[in-house]
Design a protein around this nucleic acid. Structure first.
Lengths: 222, 222, 222, 222
DNA sequence: TATGAATGAGGTTTCATTCAT
DNA sequence: CATGAATGAAACCTCATTCAT
């Protein structure tokens, strides 16, 4: 008789029984696995079986932690949407610092590793699936876009008052400030055969166009 | 307004037998139905049965015109990617016309009806599915993005030479010019609960920031 | 507008209108194409579209000549089952000729080109599809197997009477005489990785076993 | 009698949850159902839905055990090809036993119930589908035909050395020994309107022709 | 007669979800 | 809590057959 259950004779590595610690660990494993897969393949491109396999658990276990695939998807993204941007929108120009220089200073860390961190992938995923998962778009708006726009609007007004800008466009359309990142991220995701765009370089070029070039060094001392 | 639903106004497409005219009408009916559905629900959100039903034909007929679902998807998009942008990138500033004014003049017609025409939806679809359908992204790049970038680059250089710009950013990153449209389109698609963004207004605000405000009327006469 | 009907502007090569000659030619074309394909791929492995394409006609035309796929299949085989065996079973040993030598003489031409002619393929096809197409098996029996068995039976009785055989087995089971051909044909069709079996050599070896070796040359003169 | 329908006697195989025993039973149910159907109707004549229905399981369950229909087909046949012939080719003539008598003694049990067991049906199926499923033919050759041919060849040589045969035909074409079984099996499968052929009787008749009749009783005592 | 676009029943396969163990 | 075999509703695609031209 062909025996296909040999593996089942070994005692399973992960034992059973309740345990808050183990439960939390399982949940983390699921979230981690699902994040990897969803970022890579989108909602439809991932099977629950894949998630379970990568998390090292059984398919059924997924449903102990998430009601269904959509809940898992949203749960996963909810967890990564906010994280990496914390603090981004709270800064304020240092006394005497031009808005332009403040922006250049703040943007660096964020734009520098858009791909390595997964901010780029998250952005692309939200864009791609936001239409079918309004919750996603709403969450993204509440946690990222909304606060960002508010902060940018304040900066736009400040820069206009200080005479650093030639129009009130940034106050009326604070989203414009996000243009370079969004463009670069989409470009890099879509046109893989083309040269990649460096988001930071693009943003700095944009700053030059909008605010004018940075002040030459001697001006700072004078 | 792009009209792909003509077939629905005529008598039903059905009936058999060879007939180039009828065949062409069937094909158009398929393309129209598929376009409507794909733009609305994305690749996975559409079933072949839906397309057939909306086109008023049998499922099998789809496969006489397209090898499989992916071919239909690509065929449909290939047909609408190019069309609406023809001529956009070929214009040249009139003698004595500032680059800024030229851009404002050209952009109007394109940006004014992004949603009504389906350019906005196409853009969103390419962005959402481009990752899984590289052909799509490539086609979009070849037909739209590439030529657009080349034209924008020339304009950027021209404006810089004429002293209309304060940096070479537009020459180095011609994509920046597309920022406002892309941002507005994505915004309107994702954040349906938020106030919509008018792409043209946003673009004009961007022009003010980058090129400075338009010359006041009295300057023209002087 | 994409034009997919350019080919239809050329006048079709085969003109229309009734004509007994043309009709017969069409029918032959169908039979030839169908035979090639059925012998190669079996009933289910052939599509009506394939037959039409190979015959150089339209799919619909097939149905003007054959009611359905099964009728075509049977019609095709009916046409080739009998042909190549005509005359095989009618011969009679020459005066003074041993049955064994008569068999060796008659078998040669038939066994020598089993594959090149398509007798081998026909045999295999009848065996493979006979279960699902009883008509086929019946026809084969009526035209080939039945007459063959009758002839073999007569030869078996004759040989027994003449003392050339050591039993009445061939009279009771005249099919035994076909054993070598059938075995060799099946073997060559099934075990393509193995060395092929030469049907004639196998038959002669069988003759030696059953009838004893051929008489040595000197016996003929004495 | 090969028993693959045991599952049908027990309570239905359904119900969920892990359980090696139940899993094995499901697998057996599938194999049994598939064997019945495939032997009866061939590969194309069986639908996966039929197999599932006869096995008393859901369609999807089939795919937990076999990757696709072809895998099921091959899996099923692999399981029955070898079984019934085990031991057939390992026997050796008893001391003083004529090869002829040894063959008659060994063949009886095998030939007696070709149809009731399903050896006949398996043989027919391998012949019919072997062309499209080379794996099948290879397996059959490896497990049945190859070993058989080797054993027959040894017997042929032995019989020749002992003077029981009048030629080396059986050594050169050991397949000849299988002729009667193959012929009878095919005949009975194809020509259902004709009188059936008893494989054993045919084989014994063949033995008489090739080896001469069995020794008369008085020879045994003498 | 000939055409070939159209039909649509039917087949295979997938995969989110359930639930007995 | 965890398991994973089982489920079954889809979804895609094929292809013999029809019939208006």
């Amino acid at each position: 008789m062909v025996s296909y259950d040999a593996s089942k004779n070994d005692r399973p590595v992960s034992s059973r029984g309740p345990s808050p610690a183990r439960t939390a660990r399982t949940r983390e494993a699921i979230l981690g696995a699902a994040l990897d897969l969803f970022l890579d393949a989108g909602f439809d491109g991932v099977r629950m079986a894949d998630v379970a396999a990568r998390a090292g658990i059984a398919k059924g276990t997924l449903y102990l932690h998430f009601a269904d695939k959509a809940a898992l998807f949203e749960g996963v993204l909810r967890g990564v949407i906010a994280g990496p941007l914390a603090g981004l929108t709270e800064g304020v120009p240092a006394p005497g610092e031009r808005v332009r220089d403040f922006l250049a200073r703040m943007a660096g860390p964020v734009l520098r590793d858009m791909e390595g961190s997964r901010r780029a992938a998250v952005l692309r995923l939200v864009i791609a699936e936001g239409g079918r998962f309004p919750v996603l778009a709403e969450t993204y708006h509440r946690l990222v876009v909304g606060p960002g726009a508010a902060a940018f609007r304040r900066l736009g007004r400040l820069a206009l008052e200080r005479g650093e800008l030639r129009g009130d466009g940034l106050e009326r359309f604070p989203q414009l400030l996000a243009g370079p990142v969004v463009l670069a991220t989409l470009w890099n995701g879509l046109f893989t055969a083309e040269p990649r765009i460096d988001p930071e370089a693009m943003f700095l070029a944009w700053l030059d166009l909008v605010f004018g070039p940075p002040l030459p060094p001697e001006d700072r001392t004078g």
